[in-house]
């Protein structure tokens, strides 16, 4: 039972460490509680290895699905050089998944632009995060937080072996450097994922149902990242109607902010 130096006393011998990389036009960060490998904690090497796995996965998906790369499979589909029936299995799976969400959200989420061009960018980041999470678990990592441009999936706890939640702050759309509120992920909550969509968002094309952008920012916490991501996008597009539909039909918590700063929140976001 020898006691080795404790990097941050009181946190179970671990300290949070993060590694980041750029992909899909934004920054992806992986945070792990890092400690002494001799005590069974992940070390800095494990963090580097885990980040490399996540990065490879994101890059592979970006190469296939990016509409910013003229040579990607998605771009060739968009230009009509490739038919969906000839596309890769991965492409067709994401298309099927996106269409499933279109049905479930009554069209508020859609994988097609108004001009008919297929655009899966609304689902691909969530898919990448989901796949990365699966890989991290397969690597034996139990406690981590993965943040891809503001969409977050966590596992376990920031303090290994405890039920302490990962706490996610939610950005104020009127001032990106302040937080409006926070939400506890994992811990005692079944929600492990949180995603935020904005009405003036880069890359992710949101086409409104009707003509008004009722909400400037919508945050959804859910048990999985794709649900959180898709529903946040759908509620920005579909307004209160879609918000009610999401709250009724999925196990989600929602915080929606209007342009005037007023907010709507489901019970999990309401102060006790």
């Amino acid at each position: 039972m020898q006691r080795i130096s404790d990097p941050l006393p009181g946190t179970g011998g671990t300290v949070l460490k993060a590694r980041t990389f750029e992909c899909m036009g934004t920054v992806i960060g992986l945070t792990l509680p890092v400690g002494n490998p001799a005590e069974g904690h992940a070390g800095l090497d494990e963090l580097a290895a885990a980040t490399a796995v996540v990065e490879l996965l994101f890059r592979d998906l970006d190469e296939t699905f990016s509409l910013y790369r003229p040579d990607s499979e998605a771009s060739r589909l968009a230009r009509g050089e490739l038919k969906l029936s000839q596309a890769s299995a991965g492409m067709r799976e994401r298309y099927a998944e996106a269409h499933e969400w279109r049905l479930r959200t009554e069209g508020a989420f859609t994988p097609e632009r108004p001009d008919g061009v297929l655009d899966l960018s609304g689902i691909i980041k969530g898919h990448a995060i989901r796949e990365a999470g699966t890989s991290l678990l397969a690597l034996g990592r139990r406690d981590w937080c993965l943040n891809a441009g503001g969409d977050v999936l966590v596992s376990g706890s920031p303090t290994p072996g405890r039920r302490e939640a990962w706490k996610a702050g939610i950005v104020d759309p009127a001032d990106r450097r302040t937080l409006i509120t926070g939400y506890a992920l994992s811990g005692n909550s079944p929600h492990r994922a949180i995603a935020t969509s904005g009405s003036a968002e880069r890359g992710e094309h949101i086409w409104r149902v009707g003509n008004s952008a009722e909400f400037v920012q919508v945050t959804v916490a859910a048990t999985d990242i794709v649900t959180a991501d898709v529903l946040a996008t759908a509620i920005v597009a579909g307004g209160t109607r879609m918000l009610d539909r999401a709250a009724d039909n999925w196990d989600v918590a929602v915080l929606a902010i209007r342009a005037d700063g007023s907010m709507l929140a489901t019970p999990a976001f309401q102060p006790a």
């Binding site: 934004t26 503001g150 702050g169 950005v171 409006i180 907010m263 102060p271």
Partner: peptide, 29 residues
């Protein structure tokens, strides 16, 4: 599970909360 109005003053306390990550609309690099 329906959403209800939430007053900003009710949640301001969370600003100072210790968070490990931040969720916001997708931002550029």
């Amino acid at each position: 599970n329906r959403a209800a109005p939430l007053l900003r003053s009710k949640v301001l306390a969370a600003q100072s909360a210790n968070v490990q990550t931040v969720s916001g609309a997708t931002i550029t690099s």
